[in-house]
Write a protein that binds this DNA or RNA. Structure first.
Lengths: 122, 122
DNA sequence: GGATTATATAAGCTATTTCTTATATAAAAT
DNA sequence: ATTTTATATAAGAAATAGCTTATATAATCC
């Protein structure tokens, strides 16, 4: 879960890819259209599109010799679904954080400022 | 706007920082607590916290010799506000994309598949 | 079939990020 | 005062990411 989310956030955290995502929110575009619109090299666009596709952010549709890309999922409305799920999930049920949660519950608070043993963990 | 958003997404797109953010959603924690909970070195934690703080994702509160960090903003509910704003914003009003929008409207569609001049841009 | 167009991929370089180790600062405890 | 505790910062190494140039693939056009 963290791995997938990290991939999505990394893919979005780059200025050219952020621009691509916003442009695709207007309409589906092919590589050569993005090339003309962004004014950057074709390999650079293809490479960024690959990152976005591998993150599940865009879909590809082939038509003749063209590849058209469009936004996938809930991105259009501004929600990054995987992040929302991650933050809303019950931490006690997240395998990737089980070690950390156990340590959090057993913090030796003689050394810390608060009474951890009494704090309510969800 | 893109710059600020990029900073936030880059800050979140890293596994240790994603864990920190989730742990801070449980409660405020100081550096030494995070050190004990995550089981990684103190400088590494301080460095990640600096990235999160510079992105406006966490707040710092000093108490005695401790620094307590807590989640800022709407992150708790899973919304990345700056991304939501970015995606919902009217592209025609975004200075960072004015060049691209102009090119998009003037795409030479003899070369492309669709009738761009007639397409409705928001 | 050969040329052109659209896209993808690979290789090498540069820039950025992350981690470790060491050191600095500053408050607290003795 | 000196030592201990908590945190921050700096420097260097290692890993990762992004860009350019060149080449590959594959469909279309003549």
């Amino acid at each position: 879960m963290i791995q997938q989310l990290e991939t999505v956030l990394k893919a979005l955290g780059e200025p050219t890819r952020l621009k691509i995502v916003k442009l695709l929110s207007v309409r589906e575009l092919c590589v050569c259209e993005l090339e003309a619109v962004l004014g950057i090299s074709q390999p650079r666009i293809s490479q960024h599109l690959r990152v976005l596709k591998e993150a599940g952010i865009v879909n590809e549709r082939k038509e003749r010799q063209r590849s058209f890309y469009s936004l996938a999922g809930t991105l259009k409305t501004g929600e990054i679904a995987s992040f929302a799920e991650y933050m809303r999930a019950e931490i006690a049920h997240m395998p990737e954080l089980s070690t950390e949660v156990a340590r959090l519950q057993n913090l030796d608070c003689n050394e810390a400022v608060r009474k951890c043993k009494n704090s309510s963990l969800p």
